[in-house]
Design a protein around this nucleic acid. Structure first.
Length: 830
RNA sequence: GGGUCGGUGGCGGAAUGGCAGACGCAGCGGACUUAAAAUCCGCCGGGGCAACCCUUGUGGGUUCGAAUCCCACCCGACCUACCA
């Protein structure tokens, strides 16, 4: 008897041995096909939780499987180390965020090692290291040079709890709350830095066609970008000020009976008459307040106020009233609309409520021209009426004709509008990358010269309990001489959104902290170009879907911008994406401290070992589905490892080894083995770990039985044992390594993780006899055991002659017999 | 309101047009043990003595045959929301 399976002993042993051998160190080998496998980098919160295990260990198994299949696999790790929790902890406990962060990172490195993953620790990167974030600043300057970074005074979303502005993507839900803390955001007018992501809107849309990403994510990104085609038309106020509008229905221009501006629209003040001013200002105040107190979409009752002003419709020179209403958003389109109540549901409701004119300009499908009960908005049925030169035009295609006419007459033009806004990257917090800009009283806003990078965060910052950035009060940080005129100036105190870090970290990993301590120039590259050339782009990315319209959009934008800087020449940063689901508490709810359903993986690792925890997480169900953690079900995986261990490690009984096995017993094991090899390989390639493990369990069960027969003395037994161990290696790296040292014979001493993945042989996997079902009218009545490939007519006659069939067809007429070779015979009687 | 995904034993799930319930958990019976745990062997959707019958959210349809395809509905999860 060999020793019992003892994960607590073998796991640390192998982790140390792999480290010592440098088994997972990165080697750029031009003779081997590279595979860049990446899992979203963790935030160093201080503890690796079950969610991390669920995201990372299956990624590791997939990466290991690739490696055994001959790829040179790069599987790096690092830390997304900037962000609010560090700062909040600093305020609470009076430690510098840097100390807090690095302490957490140290702890999490240890926990990550316990996973037994093939991390490329030699390429680790920590985003709060100045040698990392100096490149954020370098990128910022490059984007500024390219006019892709700019500063704008505009209303922005501000979280009063986090004390900072947020990107549109970080504002969630009906009540427009902060993604991080849940506080409803408020609007503030601020001078803020933005990245011109909208410049790439079209490309971001088109690029989706070229990448192998989940359809769900693509749909979310498409919706987020929100492309719509229409026309820009310029109305004018009576005073002659232009009011630009965007419409997807230029064919309804003659039906515009009023205009609506967003309450915040800059022209409101000017068009409002004295009589209406009080009402308008009251409404504006109300609308602003509505932003502050969660404006729910539940009450859809439309409200608005007449400004007293009028606009001229350029197509027919009609004078129409201008209203303001909060159903028009300042953040979409131009913040102003032409209202066509007859053909737009919202305008219809508004017109009804305030008694405004509803003028029909499109007939019904039956030619109806009468009064409407509700808005008629079909783009395909009906003809234009009351529309000047376009009377009688079928509505299908009318929009294009009107647009052409608008262009000819100079009243408007074709326009594509996007819902997506530019990326607001300014944050008013301290623990982030300082934006490398200087405010000079004489020269204005001036970039920090490249050679002066990095602008480093001070180590002695004093934190305010309010969360207000200490940078604003830090004399040493603040004061600077203007690089242009040499006069006294101040540094920008805003820092960058941490999504900046995650937008390029995949490239940083190929040669982290490259050019350490060196002065930077605009012609630098943020990583070793040779390394980048070999490893980039990422072949397989894995992570949660919650980033669909944030990180996963930014990272694509950034790739296009970096390409246009000339740093690399590909268009998409990640060729394949897989989104895992979410691991839930035993109660089926999201794990949270307040619910008290948090499962601590360290506890289970201590009890069962990392291999069991890895395997259990992969066994729960399909990886993209997630699911609840069942504390008793983990026993099943542990038992499997225990049984596999004694099956492989314990000597078989000598009398069984000496005996002569029956040929069919040998073939049965060979068949099962090759069926498993084919199945597991296919499952691993497609992230179907749950069924791969089930297949390994089946093989193990079959081998436990076979071990009690003379099959153990035949060569197929050795092959099966070795193959099982090899197939287990990606999911269960430690136990597989330990077992391999016993069964690996010729390769003895060499790691199981350096072995080639065993190949299944479909000939050997073939069944030599199969069961064919005999049905009468679709119900199973008997079964035949035949050789595969038995001819149709033979099957048919055997089926008709099978013992249990006659009583079902007696007295009835056989109308049809359906024979599916190797599957079934269905006798249709009636 | 719109979009996406899902609904299969007591539970997690397998099967994507051809024997529903692989694999595992829980449960039940047995062996070992003074006993228990662990381990091992067996049973395990429901009804019925049996022959058989019923069973994949509900109702319809296509098909020789449907968990799987189509239509309608119900329920749940996630995303999104006055998008002009």
């Amino acid at each position: 008897m060999a020793d019992k399976y003892n994960p607590q002993e073998i796991e640390p042993k192998w982790q140390a041995a792999w480290d010592a051998q440098g088994l997972y160190n990165t080697v750029e080998d031009p003779d081997r096909t590279k595979w860049y496998a990446l899992t979203m980098l963790p935030y160093p919160s201080g503890d690796l939780h079950t969610g991390h295990w669920y995201a990372m260990t299956p990624s590791d198994a997939a990466a290991r499987w690739r490696r055994m299949n001959g790829y040179n696999v790069f599987f790096p790790i690092g830390f997304d180390a900037f962000g609010l929790p560090a700062e909040n902890a600093a305020i609470k406990n009076n430690v510098h965020p840097k100390q807090w962060t690095y302490r957490n990172i140290e702890r999490m490195r240890g926990q990550l090692r316990q996973m037994g993953a093939m991390w490329a620790w030699d390429r680790e990167a920590v985003t709060c290291d100045p040698e990392f974030y100096k490149w954020n600043q370098w990128f910022f300057l490059k984007l500024y040079d390219m006019d892709l970074a700019y500063r704008e005074y505009a209303p922005v979303d501000f979280c009063p709890t986090c004390n900072t502005t947020l990107a549109r993507e970080q504002v969630w839900g009906e009540d427009r709350h902060c993604e991080r803390c849940g506080t409803p955001v408020i609007k503030k007018d601020l001078e803020q830095w933005k990245f011109r992501i909208t410049a790439y809107a079209e490309e971001l849309l088109d690029g989706l066609e070229t990448i192998d990403w989940p359809e769900r994510v693509k749909i979310m990104q498409r919706n987020w970008i929100g492309r719509s085609e229409g026309a820009q038309v310029i109305f004018t106020t009576e005073a002659g000020d232009p009011i630009e509008i965007f419409t997807t229905r230029p064919d309804t221009l003659w039906g515009a009976t009023f205009m609506v501006l967003a309450p915040e629209h800059p022209l409101v003040e000017k068009v409002t008459t004295d009589e209406q001013r009080a009402a308008v200002e009251a409404y504006q105040a109300e609308a602003e307040r509505k932003d502050e107190i969660a404006r729910t979409a539940a009450d859809k009752e439309k409200t608005g106020v007449f400004t007293g002003g009028y606009a001229i419709n350029p197509v027919n020179d009609e004078r129409i009233p201008i209203w303001i209403a909060d159903y028009v958003m300042m953040t979409y389109g131009t913040g102003a609309i032409m209202a066509v109540p007859a053909h737009d549901e919202r305008d219809f409701a508004f017109a009804k409520k305030y008694g405004l004119e509803i003028r029909r300009v499109i007939t019904g499908p039956d030619g109806a021209e009468g009064e409407l009960e509700e808005a008629w908005s079909s783009k395909y049925e009906g003809r234009l009426i009351n529309s000047g030169p376009f009377d009688g035009t079928p509505v299908e295609g009318a929009a294009a004709k009107v647009t052409a006419w608008l262009e000819e007459t100079g009243k408007g033009r074709f326009m594509v509008n996007y819902r997506m806004r530019d990326w607001l990257i300014s944050r008013q917090r301290m623990w982030g990358t300082p934006i490398p800009m200087i405010h000079c009283p004489t020269c204005g806003v001036v970039p920090v010269p490249y050679e002066d990078l990095p602008v480093v965060l001070p180590d002695d910052a004093q934190f305010k309990p309010t969360g207000e950035s200490p940078l604003k009060y830090h004399e040493g940080f603040l004061h600077v001489t203007c690089p242009v005129c040499g006069g006294d100036a101040e540094r920008e105190t805003d820092t960058m959104d941490t999504f900046m870090d995650s937008s390029w970290y995949p490239y940083a990993y190929v040669s982290p902290y490259w050019k350490q301590g060196e002065k930077l120039t605009p012609d630098d590259t943020p990583w070793d170009p040779a390394m980048g050339e070999y490893w980039l782009p990422v072949d397989q990315y894995t992570g949660g879907i919650e980033h669909a319209t944030m990180h996963l959009l930014y990272v694509r934008f950034f790739a296009k911008a970096v390409r246009d800087m000339g740093v690399f020449d590909f268009d998409e940063p990640m060729l394949r994406l897989f989104n895992q689901g979410m691991i839930l508490g035993p109660d089926g709810e999201k794990m949270s401290k307040s619910r008290g359903n948090v499962v601590n993986p360290d506890e289970y690792v201590a009890k069962y070992g990392a291999d069991t925890v890895r395997g259990y997480l992969m066994f729960i169900g399909p990886w993209d589905q997630g699911g609840p953690w069942d504390p008793s079900a983990i026993e099943g995986v542990h038992r499997f490892l225990y049984r596999a261990w004694s099956m492989v490690m314990d000597e078989p009984k000598p009398e069984r080894v000496a005996a002569q096995p029956k040929a069919e017993q040998v073939r049965a094991l060979e068949r099962k083995l090759h069926q498993t090899l084919i199945k597991v390989n296919d499952d691993m390639a497609n992230f179907r770990f749950n069924t791969a493990i089930a297949a390994l369990m089946e093989l193990n069960n079959a081998m436990i039985k076979a071990k009690e027969t003379a099959v153990v003395g035949s060569p197929i037994w050795e092959e099966a044992v070795r193959s099982l161990v090899l197939m287990m290696a990606p999911i269960f790296p430690h136990i597989a390594e330990e077992m391999w040292q016993q069964v690996g014979d010729s390769e003895k001493g060499e790691s199981v993780h350096l072995q080639a993945w065993p190949q299944g042989d479909s000939e050997k996997a073939k069944e030599y006899e199969i069961t064919v079902v005999v049905q009468v009218n679709g119900k199973v009545r008997d079964k035949l055991t035949v050789a595969p490939g038995t001819a149709k007519d033979v099957l048919e006659s055997q089926a008709l002659a099978s013992p249990n069939v006659p009583k079902w067809i007696d007295g009835k007429q056989v109308r049809k017999v359906i024979v599916v070779p190797n599957k079934l015979v269905n006798i249709v009687v009636g």
